[in-house]
Amino acid sequence: MSTLRAYLTSERPASRGQARLGQYYRQWRSLRSNPLALTGLIIILALLVIAALAPQIAPYNPIAQNLDQRLLPPSAAHWFGTDALGRDILSRILHGTRITLVIVVLVVMSVGPVGLLIGTLAGYFGGPVDTLLMRVTDVFMAFPRLVLALAFVAVLGPGIENAVIAIAFTAWPPYARVARAETMVIRNADYIAAVRLQGASNLRIILRHVVPMCLPSVIVRTTLDMAGIILTAAGLGFLGLGAQPPLPEWGAMIASGREFIFDQWWVAAFPGMAICLVALGFNLFGDGLRDVLDAH
């Protein structure tokens, strides 16, 4: 163990791999010393575990209706009570982690690369390319996010895939902005000039030498953005435009509890707490990650 630590913390790494691992190790140590970030990480890990094991740990079927058991208050048999169709709310929340994760992962996977590409192209080439790309970015930034997502869903029709597309369409501009700002600094660095003198093409410079340097900022931005994505997705679900019944999407579950809010509060209350907890996890972890990765 101590040799491993010595290997990782070595002042003179013998290989590129060792240097990289050493850097990861130091970042992990500084993240570990931040209790809030660690709390966030634990929440995210719990989310992943629950999503993976949902069918095993959920006490009931999340979709099967049981009309004898409608709107039961929280009890030993149903910890979070049951909804209007007699479904166990705890089981639905546990299964709902999968939908939340799918939405977040799909949005991030589509938005990150697109934003990164547009931002680095604009920042690297400058001039008319920059003006054109940033003008487009500004147009999308000028729209309030949820309203634009609503308009897109209106065209595409409600559903989980379309909600993902709509959120992705509205979420990329900040990433492009971040990547552009980083690139404008990087492109004047000496090592870029050196690579260029060696005859590297623009494409190679961007992909191999600019993009990796932009990644930390984009990753931080992504983590901080995940809470926003979750909230937007829940908002669409609440308005009936996201995941459709009987899928146990948290926003839609809150909407279904709306009409019983004054008498059967648990139908809407618990899914909302789940959203809060997960969004909080991403926010805490993102804050910590920013301190570690983003010195400036």
């Binding site: 909230l231 908002g235 609440f238 809150i254 004054f262 959203i275 809060c276």
Partner: peptide, 22 residues
């Protein structure tokens, strides 16, 4: 700050109605 960035606004509204109105 964390609270404001993590709570779904519609859920907070519903809970507010439940507590302060009902």
């Amino acid at each position: 700050g964390l609270f404001g960035y993590s709570i779904p606004i519609f859920w907070l509204g519903l809970m507010g109605l439940l507590l302060f109105y009902a």
